[in-house]
Design a protein around this nucleic acid. Structure first.
Lengths: 338, 338
DNA sequence: AGGAGGCCGTTATACGTAAAACTACATGCG
DNA sequence: CGCATGTAGTTTTACGTATAACGGCCTCCT
């Protein structure tokens, strides 16, 4: 409890155990077999325990030239989705003795600051979501090994990418709605500049184009429930035939759409079918439960981390998108005969 | 682009600019006024830019003996609430040149690992939520400056605490329901061992005890929508008079309760009133919108960080709980005459 | 007997940075 | 002139760790 006393160093431990600092390092680093006797090793460990010694990570990192720490750059942290990504990445990291530090891209933290200023930890590499676009320039400037999540493989010069098969997800959604008989779609698009959202619109367009007589309108909103509500309300209030199916870029947008639809006095799925994308807890909290596409966020995180470890190792990361799965619930049904 | 070439150091910059390493440190550290001439300073900065120099943080941290990095230990990262806490803490931290590193307490990352093993960053201090209970022993072992969020001020020997005024929140909820005429309560309690949940039950009990003829039953569930649903369903199916008001420990539990109530064929708020606590996005996504207590997560994070900065500075942190605010929405109404 | 090798350590060094201590020269002032 | 003050740097050192290089002593084999 001695106030002002500094943390014990390996030299303090050495003194207490009556050995040299090198011996302490060997013992605690588990490299002592054949170099230090059993009794001495025990004495060192006991002294370290008594003093409450913890190695100075800054010194270790400096000495070793690596930190076994990796940065995960994600957009706003407000969704379970990125929590899952983190969990998966951290699990794999832990298995390899790595740590993961989060940089939630700034939202009110100030003008698009460089992530390295905030996450001051010394880093071995970076995993970045393509949604955290503002941080990318800073990252690119650095020569740290980089893995991009959900990013255009063409556009991310050199950096390894790991992608969810969102295109297939939207295809499954579209097939499902077409099979139910829907022909008139409204696409509630996320107003976020990111490749992963661009391909949603693209796939919906190309898939419906193969069926004659289909129409697709588009509304656009930031990913908040309130914005989604107002956007949907104005879109559905527009003149012309009302769409019978509403395809949302993610579950949160769908939740907003639910509110708009209720306000307009319409029923789901009788008057209009709604689909989401993510399968958050939200999807089963709302009534009726949402037909959506399940994304395996943890697997996404795991694959991202594995890719980064591969890059750090000089190996080639595993290829192939991560499969996704349509989950049909109560928010979709055939269009009412009219 | 030279592959395998190592990152440039301040010595490389010095050589390129034709000065000593010390001069580089002075210039880039902004301590050069009166020590280095303007032209030389410019030359150094230009050389640093050209080489893409970034200081080695491990070395800087070692030299300075501090890292300007702080660890935020939170429970599962799946709620917006802790995202808000992070945002607030990071804002204040950035204003003081600090960084914040997150340690989401393990949930499938392995058996209650020591947070410092995962967040390998060298740290100046720690802010920990009392909900991340498993990590606390490891933290206590360390002698890092510590601030506890929502923790029993008596139990946290020495560590500074910053608390939301949850007691007042539950009091506001209870007053509201009593004023509406409710007398028979069901308390859906979070099955999490944490002081912040203990005081919810305590306050509900003491407040209702002042009004004759009130009853309080308790159901208990982990904080997931599914668990909350089953717990509520069995509790409401139990014999005896049905409660007319359901007080939930947080919004997520309330969302589960909604589903149970719908399954039982009851209506909110006609047959039963429901309240939450947090005011997440979820609260306005469900129908009817949830009467709940708004917690200012960002302010919570800000105050936590300010307290830690005070501790690091040898000052005494600001006293006083953070006020909370009841938000009345559509899920509460007078009990139906029966 | 003598040296080869195993055992049990120690001494010395480097990692990259910040900053204290020092040097060298010019200018101003009594 | 002699000394203080100011300018513009350089030299040197320390932070705490991991490990390469070194060295004594004992045993055992030929």
């Amino acid at each position: 409890m001695a106030r002002g006393s500094t943390r014990p160093t390996s030299r303090d431990v050495a003194e207490a155990a009556g050995v040299s600092q090198a011996a302490v390092s060997l013992v605690l680093g588990d490299k002592w077999r054949g170099r230090v006797s059993q009794p001495t090793a025990d004495r060192v460990r006991e002294a370290a325990r008594q003093l409450g010694y913890r190695p100075n990570l800054a010194a270790r990192n400096l000495r070793l030239g690596r930190t076994r720490t990796v940065l995960l750059v994600v957009p706003v942290l407000t969704t379970e989705f990125f929590a899952g990504v983190y969990t998966g990445a951290a699990r794999i990291a832990a298995e390899h003795g790595f740590g993961v530090v989060l940089y939630p891209s700034p939202e009110g933290i100030g003008p698009a600051r460089d992530p390295f200023a905030s996450a001051q930890a010394a880093l071995d590499g970076v995993i970045a979501s393509s949604m955290a676009a503002d941080a990318l320039t800073a990252i690119r400037g650095d020569q740290l090994p980089l893995v991009m999540l959900d990013s255009d493989p063409e556009g991310s010069l050199g950096a390894a990418t790991v992608n969810l098969d969102i295109t297939d997800g939207i295809r499954q959604v579209t097939e499902h709605l077409l099979a139910l008989g829907h022909r008139h779609f409204l696409h509630l698009a996320a107003d976020v500049p990111s490749w992963t959202f661009d391909i949603r619109a693209r796939e919906l367009a190309t898939r419906t184009a193969t069926v004659p007589g289909t129409t697709v309108r588009t509304a656009r909103a930031p990913i908040t429930i309130e914005d989604a509500r107002t956007a949907t309300e104005t879109a559905l209030g527009a003149p012309g035939p009302r769409p019978t199916a509403l395809v949302c870029d993610d579950d949160k947008l769908a939740a907003g759409a639910y509110k708009a639809i209720r306000r307009l006095g319409l029923r789901i799925p009788d008057d209009i079918s709604v689909t989401g994308l993510d399968d958050l807890a939200l999807a089963t909290a709302i009534d009726p439960e949402l037909t959506t596409v399940k994304l395996d966020a943890e697997l996404f995180g795991e694959r991202g981390m594995q890719a980064l470890l591969a890059v750090l190792d000089g190996r080639t990361p595993q290829e192939g998108d991560i499969p996704v799965q349509l989950v049909v619930r109560g928010s979709t049904a055939p269009p009412s005969a009219s």
